[in-house]
Write a protein that binds this DNA or RNA. Structure first.
Lengths: 292, 292
DNA sequence: CACACTTACGATATTCGTAAGGATT
DNA sequence: AATCCTTACGAATATCGTAAGTGTG
């Protein structure tokens, strides 16, 4: 039993005419006749009774008719579903991104993606850097945006930006005129830090040692606003520059030695991204180039 | 997308190896390779990622896998179901029969049928003659057993037995020594008749005019037992002879002019019986020959 | 005689298997 | 070197359409 044979049967059963079914199937009468005959032989008995002037279903044909309809409908639906996934007319991507990226750069990339592929469902997981890596490893997301991890096994990393730390100081700070500030310049000010665990916090501490932390927050937004209110200074990834400015903080480049780390896309290596995830990755890459 | 292609995909996806899938499919590697390739082209993208040493599913392949399983399972089930119907390993027949036949002859035919085709469900409708015809016309049953109807249009009738009326008298009746009795011989006795509407009742009245009915019943069993108890005499189709004897009645042939009517199978003309109904009809015909 | 389905048959397309090629372990 | 998948190509198979055949209204 083949798809063609079943389609042939359905066409004849519905029109009760070989001639009409021929047109619907774009098939010659003999070809249709043979298809039905072959189907009947493969199933072990007649499905249609043909008098020279009319066609009727046998009881077994009556049994097959609704089954054939459902079978072919399921078949066509499945085919269409797959095609839609390949043509990005349907699908779902899950992406995880570290908070700074999720807050500052991802939204515009998602916007561009959604404008182009409105039917693709995008799930964004805004989690700390380490969890992004875990989620990619666990296959809970196809894509991640992270600071380049030390341990890459099983993962592929591709740089989007080169990020360095910048100081954030209140608008009335004495440092504000300086073209750049050193780590030591900030030691005297109350320091506002991300709460642990956080890669940014860890990297800063690795650079300057234990900090005299005055305030802590999980959110860059809170940090920015605290700095804006003159509560202290902070150090944030350069990706957050614009956000800090909007919140009232003033950003100043850090003098050497500066810490630079790559921010980039990670995915499991050796597996193929879904068409949707591939397209999202492309969109994010394009978006990164535009900003730079 | 064809059945073969989908089976090929399923085999590869399950074994994650072309080589193993080849054996399962009884197919050469190139043929399998081509089948997958064609499938991928027809759907618009890759389903499998082949490194030279391993095979993995693409995300779209992951989507297709459970769909393919269900599709093929449904397909195989449908095919098997139809085959079972044709080979009489599964099915259902509905038959309607007039009470005298249903009670006297049908059970042994059903028994023989069920011994031979234990999986076929048989529904018997024990209804009066006219309703049998109606049920066949209305397609509520495929087969009927009736006295040959006057109006046959749209129906086919095939004789099983030639039935004539026989007299039933109590065992202590004076008539019991007679080789045959006439209609008039029975006029003096209390008459036990089937209740109207009944073809038998109608035929008897057509023969002898209005009867002096002493008792009426819907059931031949009741009539037989009444006669057996000496409450009166009756006239029944010869098909009931054995039943009457068992109930204590004594059957005597009717002298000429006797009424003979055919008892036979009816079915809608121009349609094909289901394989199951055809087999049941054959069994009933064989059963009728054995009795004669 | 026109219509509707089937059979006959030659042409075209698919599908298959063998043989060879390329890549990885 | 061995394994595994792909490409190449000739052969077998299946399917198709044209033409002829058959039975019905």
């Amino acid at each position: 039993m083949t798809i063609k044979q079943l389609r042939a049967f359905l066409a004849v059963a519905q029109s009760l005419s070989f001639a009409q079914a021929c047109e619907r199937l774009h098939l010659s009468q003999p070809a249709l006749s043979l298809a039905i005959k072959t189907l009947e032989e493969s199933l072990g008995g007649p499905l249609l009774v043909r008098t020279t002037r009319s066609v009727a279903l046998t009881p077994e044909g009556e049994i097959l008719l609704p089954i054939a309809q459902r079978l072919l409908a399921d078949w066509d639906n499945a085919e269409e579903l797959l095609r839609q996934h390949f043509t990005l007319q349907l699908g779902r991507v899950a992406i995880a991104a570290m908070p700074s990226f999720a807050a500052n750069r991802l939204p515009q990339a998602i916007k561009a993606f959604r404008d182009r592929y409105p039917k693709i469902n995008v799930a964004v997981h805004d989690v700390i850097n380490e969890q992004v890596v875990d989620m990619v490893r666990d296959r809970r997301v196809e894509l991640g945006v992270v600071l380049e991890p030390d341990n890459l096994d099983g993962l592929e990393f591709a740089t989007l930006y080169l990020d360095r730390f910048v100081a954030v100081v209140p608008p009335d700070s004495a440092l504000i005129t300086r073209p750049e500030v050193s780590w030591d310049d900030l030691r005297d000010e109350p320091f506002i830090a991300l709460q642990r665990p956080s890669t940014v916090r860890r990297l800063i501490e690795a650079q300057v040692g234990q900090l005299a932390v005055a305030f802590e927050s999980h959110q860059f937004t809170t940090i920015g606003r605290m700095v804006g209110q003159g509560l202290g200074v902070s150090i944030v990834p350069s990706i957050c520059t614009q956000q800090m400015r909007e919140l009232g903080g003033h950003c100043i480049a850090m003098s050497k030695p500066t810490v630079e780390r790559s921010i980039g896309l990670i995915q499991r290596s050796g597996i193929k991204l879904s068409a949707a995830a591939q397209a999202l990755a492309d969109t994010i890459r394009r978006s990164a180039q535009q900003v730079d």
